[in-house]
Amino acid sequence: MRKELPIWLGTMAGAFVVATRWFTLVNATGVDRMADRLIVASYAAAAAVGFIGLTRVHLRAIDARRPLWGYSIVLLVAMYGYAGLLFFLPASAPLPSWIFLNVMGPVFSTMYGLIAFFITSAAYRAFRVRNLESGILLAAAAIALLGNSAVGGRIWHGWDGLVAWIMAVPVTGGFRAIQVGAALGALGTAVRVLLGLERSHMGSPQG
């Protein structure tokens, strides 16, 4: 009962979703939107699990004086301090929004900016492999790069036409093949879960 019942409740929940999305009679009751709101509320009620996990890991690091334990204090103070602020104040209040805009904002933007550095090293690594496949990948990347930056059109006037053809034919075909395959795989996974075949996530072996 402890293992099977949660799985079958999940199957019923899945069947319910499909019924409310496909069939006019069930959909007309609006029960789908109500169920969505209830599920979101259940997620919210569980929202401290990660918080507890972080607290556990970092309290132990401090307690055992692990290397770099001082940084765990920074993390816990920031986490409890900000959560505490938002418990009493709305996110739009001056202090919480100042922290969001001037502390989290610049870190976010710079982390995003770091990607620009790493994109070049990723390209370099792909280039080092030197087989046909990485060659095709990089050639296509170079063509797109030149096409987007308007330099290509100055080198050769047919460049823009070439880029448009590549986008319309191999890129569309290639991406569609990936997307259809991924959708079939995802559907297969959903059916395996709903039939109770795939249950690794419940901490149980398959079958």
């Binding site: 990936i178 997307q179 991924a182 795989g185 995802a186 297969g188 690794s200 079958g207």
Partner: peptide, 15 residues
């Protein structure tokens, strides 16, 4: 790539 990940997941246990 894409579907390969789902097939890997379904076949990794050998079930």
């Amino acid at each position: 790539i894409g579907e390969e990940m789902y097939v890997a997941a379904a076949s990794v246990s050998g079930d």
